[in-house]
Structures are given as structure tokens and as C-alpha cells.
Amino acid sequence: MNEILNKLLELKDDKYKLFISKLVPTVNIDNFIGIRANGIRSIVKQYIHSDYAKDFLNDLPHKYYEENILHAAFLSQEKDNFDRAVEGCERFFPYIDNWAVCDTLSPEVFAKNPEKLLEKVKEWIRASTWVSRFALNMLMRFFLEDNFSPEIIKIALEADTGEYYVDMGLAWFLSYALVHKYEETLPYIESRKLPKSVQKKTIQKAVDSFRISEERKTYLKTLR
């Protein structure tokens, strides 16, 4: 058993295991250890620059949900090498099996390379469920403010909808787009051409936001 897995097992919390397993239903309960977020963060801080982390990242597949969360967290620490970050993500993609791991993954270096990232997002957006959701996450995190163009929404809409976690990822993206780029996003909601589940969830998330005016919320409710 490797050093990092030993450390994870030392942090086992059976009550938290029951709690988190209910939030991540696509993972069997036997594949949870039960570790709180601060425990994962402490391991990242302790091991990120060690050979143990390098060995851990090369040791796929992992058994436990928390190992995959940690893997995503380690990859997200990449600050300098874009190509290495992409390689790490693409090597890890086949082993992502839940929304929490998918949404944890976000290499810091991507923020410094929006043009190169966008080209990769165009490849990922129509891929498998979790890769497509990851691509939507990248559009939401890095392209709705400084790097925005009308193309961004069109790329997001290329996601292969019809799968629950992709649909929810797209709704999440569109609700953020309504916050940051309301005028540019609204026509897509008004057209009512989105899948019904995406339309409904987008509006729900927008209405729940503190960053959208009451006037706009009232209008969005008419588009449900």
C-alpha cells in the first residue's frame, strides 16, 4: 500500500462516508473512505511537490472516490506547464465517474492560456459525459468574463445533451452566462430550443442567483 493511500485511510470517517456517498450516487458506497475536504487539502499541501505525488498520479486506476478527488486536486495545482496539464487531464478522463471529481479538476495554468485551452475545449465538448461536463466547466470558469466572445455560448451548446450530468453542466454554464453576459445569453433562452430540462434548470439557477436583478428574474420565469 502506498504512502498517500495510507494517509487517506488514516483520515477515515464512517459517518461522513455515509453522508458523501448519498451526494455522489454514481459511485458504489464500498468505494468511499469518508474524508472531509480539509483532509484532502492537507494531503495536497503535504505531498504536492513529493515523489509520492508523482507515483500516485501514475498509479491509475484508483480504487477509492477520495483517491480520484485527490488526483484531480493534484492536477489542479499545475501552474506552469499547459501541455503537461492537458496530458494529465486526458490521461485521467477515462477514470472520472462522478460529478464531484469532474468539478474538482481545474488546472491553474489554464487561466494563463485561454487561446490554447479553447482549442482543447472544442475537442472535449462533444466527448463522453464527464469530459463534456469538464469542457463546460472550463468555459464557465475561464470564458465568461475577460475571455468572452459570442462563440463561447455556441461552443457550450455543442455539448451532447440528453445525459443528466451534461444537461446540468450546461444549465449551470448558461445560468452563469446570464449573470455575466445577460444580453448575449438571453436569446438562447427566449428561443426555447434548449432541451426542456436544461431550460428549466437554467432559469431555476438564474432565479436563485443574488447577482441577477428582480426585474430580470421576473422575465426569466415567463420563459420556463
Results as ranks from 00 to 15, higher is better:
Val121Pro: 07
Leu136Lys: 00
Val207Ile: 15
Leu57Arg: 12
Val166Thr: 13
Asn113Trp: 02
Arg211Thr: 14
Glu78Arg: 03
Ala111His: 06
Asp59Pro: 15
Glu145Trp: 07
Val131Lys: 11
Phe74Glu: 07
Ser213His: 04
Gly162Val: 10
Pro187Val: 10
Glu145Phe: 06
Glu67Gln: 15
Ile33Gly: 08
Asn6Tyr: 14
Ile33Met: 10
Val86Arg: 11
Ile203Ala: 02
Ser197Lys: 09
Gln199Glu: 12
Glu184Ile: 02
Asn147Cys: 06
Glu190Asn: 02
Phe93Asp: 09
Lys122Thr: 12
Glu78Val: 10
Gln46Arg: 15
Phe19Gln: 13
Val109Met: 05
Ser128Ala: 06
Glu87Asp: 13
Trp99Gln: 13
Ile153Pro: 00
Glu214Cys: 06
Lys154Arg: 13
Ile212Glu: 11
Gly162Ile: 12
Asp51Arg: 09
Glu115Ala: 05
Leu186Met: 08
Ala100His: 12
Ile35Cys: 01
Asn137Glu: 06
Leu60Met: 15
Glu90Ala: 05
Glu151Phe: 05
Ile155Met: 07
Trp130Asn: 02
Glu67Lys: 09
Phe56Lys: 15
Lys181Asp: 03
Phe143Thr: 09
Glu145Ala: 09
Gly34Val: 03
Leu223Ala: 07
Asn147Tyr: 04
Leu8Pro: 11
Phe110His: 04
Asp97Gln: 15
Met1Val: 15
Ile33Glu: 06
Ser213Pro: 10
Gln204Phe: 05
Ile152Leu: 05
Ala159Ile: 06
Lys17His: 01
Asp83Glu: 14
Asn38His: 07
